[in-house]
Simulated scan of single mutants.
Amino acid sequence: MSSIAAANRYAVALFDLAKEQNILDDISAELKVVKQVFQENDTLQKLLQHPKVSSDQKQQLIEESFTGLSVPMGNLLKLLLKKQRMDAITYIVDKFQELLEEERKVANAVVYTVKPLTSEEETMISTTFSKKLGKDTLHITNEIDPSIIGGMKIQIGDTIFDGSVKGQLNRLERELVPGKR
């Protein structure tokens, strides 16, 4: 079984438990800290995967590295350690955040423009596209991309709304030039 598939199952189980106990925000915050620790400390990951480090030593290392965690988070880390799946923690965090955003009807968008968006433009885009997607909130990250010439391109998850001049020119070229489809 792949690490990603296992990570998805762990994330869903943790999400369901956190939702049931009404501690979604707490678990989300703890997960972000745990992910940051693993990303910033390569040695920790190597020690937890090293075959010459005993299970008891690994357990102690986890307990010392992550004091003050909630019971569900502590149990998750212990389970991941026991099942030798500590490498899946980043995927678990990402999937949990995805589930949390879905639960709260929140989406994230990257808006590519030639010049920075004003706050009014961000609000208009957020309002318009959140309604189209059936979301309550749309968080926008504005990326400057001079290659689009004008207009904007919006990426929300795997979906791209291309209203850029470059996109329009490319579509026009495909229609006019044979063999360009």
Rank of each mutant, 00 (worst) to 15 (best):
K166V: 10
A109F: 02
L17A: 13
V12A: 12
Q84R: 15
K82C: 03
G157N: 04
V33N: 13
E175M: 10
S147W: 04
L80P: 01
Q36M: 08
L17E: 09
Q97A: 11
L176D: 02
A13N: 10
D87R: 09
E30C: 07
G167A: 07
E120V: 11
D16Q: 15
Q57Y: 06
D26C: 03
S147R: 08
R85M: 07
V71N: 09
K115Q: 12
N22R: 12
K153I: 06
R104K: 12
P178V: 05
P146H: 11
K58M: 10
S55K: 13
L99F: 02
Q21L: 14
E102S: 10
V53H: 08
Q57M: 13
I4V: 15
I23V: 14
E173S: 11
V53A: 09
Q45F: 11
G157D: 06
I125W: 02
E120T: 10
L14W: 09
Y91R: 00
E101P: 00
N108S: 03
L133I: 05
A11Q: 03
T43H: 09
I92Q: 02
Q45A: 13
A6I: 15
F38L: 05
M1N: 14
Q39G: 12
K115E: 11
G157I: 03
S3R: 14
H50V: 04
I148S: 04
I125N: 05
I62S: 04
R181D: 06
K19L: 11
D158Q: 12
Q60H: 11
S119D: 15
A107D: 05
K35W: 01
S147Y: 04
V177G: 03
S2N: 15
E120A: 14
R9P: 14
M86I: 15
E122M: 06
L100R: 06
L14N: 08
L69F: 11
A88F: 06
G150C: 08
Q155Y: 01
G163T: 08
G134W: 01
I154A: 03
L79T: 13
E143P: 00
S70N: 07
Q39C: 02
K19R: 15
G150I: 12
F66T: 09
E102R: 06
F161N: 03
P51D: 06
V177H: 04
E64H: 13
S3M: 14
K115F: 10
Q49F: 04
A18N: 09
F161L: 14
